[in-house]
Design a protein around this nucleic acid. Structure first.
Lengths: 216, 216
DNA sequence: TAGATTGTTAATCGATTAACAATC
DNA sequence: TAGATTGTTAATCGATTAACAATC
């Protein structure tokens, strides 16, 4: 196991990695070869110790006092950590507008995700091709996941149907679920549910707004 | 100020409110009139004390020992807290596929958000109508926000342009920004940036997957 | 009444930040 | 060498959870 690291990477740290990566790539484009933790911290408005700890947990290579970290090594290690170097296949259930957006979202490939099939139970959608991906009948999702050994399921159905779809994905052997429905999903222990809850974000946003406007 | 509450609502609590709301509405539909914190905790796989504290910080009404909380009161208070009861206008900058999804996303209205105009600097998009919303030239965004007193800006442009767009929105008097670009945005203190970072979510997801698959 | 459930104070837990010796 | 920067231990901070008296 060459992937053992001194500290585990916390979820919070993991969520910061894409931001690091984005800055590091800008530096690389400008031919900057090394960078210090304080510099990155300044660019991203983070604490410098936090950046150093994150780098330590993410990167196999160490920084050099006075010099800092190798930009290209950090990029390589972070991309490997996030699996950007090898593509995972995913299925998507629910062929509505969010699905269209995800199927048209080129960046997914950059992030190592490829949607191989979409599913819906609405006859009007079935057989359609969205951005080159076929829409299949919803009841076939378990089967296809198992046959193709797909590990990621993306849920973009309405809240009321999300748990049913989730169960089908789990039955098909999916290991991680990216859930866009604003509901809690029950899954076995070893399955990860990553919630992308637009309602939750809007909750924070609306509250801030209300407070700010009330003040004026 | 009838909106003073004993404890402030933390951001984490705020993000849980949409989940509460969703469950409460199901209960209401089933003609359940009161509900206890332990019951909701069980449904959402949360700690019962957390639920009780969240309810206390959100709701102006109190629970009754033995009986629990009034479902309809909780719903009313939560919807008021989240501003679902009065619509805020928003502008959207960047007319790509994500923009299409948001413009087609009916739930936004439920969440009290109405997109009144979309902007892009790509001539091919300008003049187009997406789901009934006109796409205008990007340079007009500040002006329109100021004239129409729009308080919410939604950023769906590529990372490289996000900060520029952000500055224009701030210049137009926007108070809250919903940012879909995977970059940190610098804003004055009183402006809220709510990041919706798909890359960050995928980072967590991919790492879990890699760990799980390595184990097998 | 008895006991389920509330509201709140205290303890725990985990993440962030501060402090500081080691080192290039 | 001097000083910027690293790596790591200790202190702080905030959120979650446990404990428990109050009450319907």
């Amino acid at each position: 196991m060459d992937d053992d690291r001194k500290y585990g990477v916390t979820i919070q740290a993991l969520r910061r990695v894409p931001y690091y990566l984005q800055q590091l790539k800008i530096l690389q484009k400008n031919n900057v070869e090394t960078v210090s933790a304080p510099k990155i911290a300044e660019l991203l408005y983070l604490n410098e110790v936090q950046v150093r700890k994150d780098f330590a947990s993410v990167s196999l290579s160490k920084g050099k006092p006075k010099a800092g970290f190798s930009v290209s090594e950090l990029i390589t290690n972070m991309e490997k950590l996030l699996g950007y170097d090898n593509t995972e296949e995913a299925v998507l259930v629910g062929a509505g507008s969010l699905a269209h957006a995800l199927l048209a979202y080129e960046e997914l490939k950059t992030y190592g995700i490829k949607i191989v099939a979409a599913f819906d139970n609405n006859a009007a959608y079935i057989g359609m091709e969205i951005n080159g991906t076929k829409v299949l009948p919803a009841e076939k999702v378990s089967d296809l996941c198992r046959r193709m050994k797909v590990h990621i399921g993306i849920i973009t159905v309405p809240a009321a149907q999300a748990q049913i779809v989730c169960d089908q994905l789990v039955a098909g052997g999916v290991l991680a679920i990216w859930n866009f429905a604003p509901v809690h999903l029950s899954v076995p222990d070893h399955i990860l549910v990553q919630n992308e809850n637009l309602a939750a974000s809007l909750a924070v946003l609306s509250k801030h707004l209300k407070k700010t406007i009330d003040k004026i």
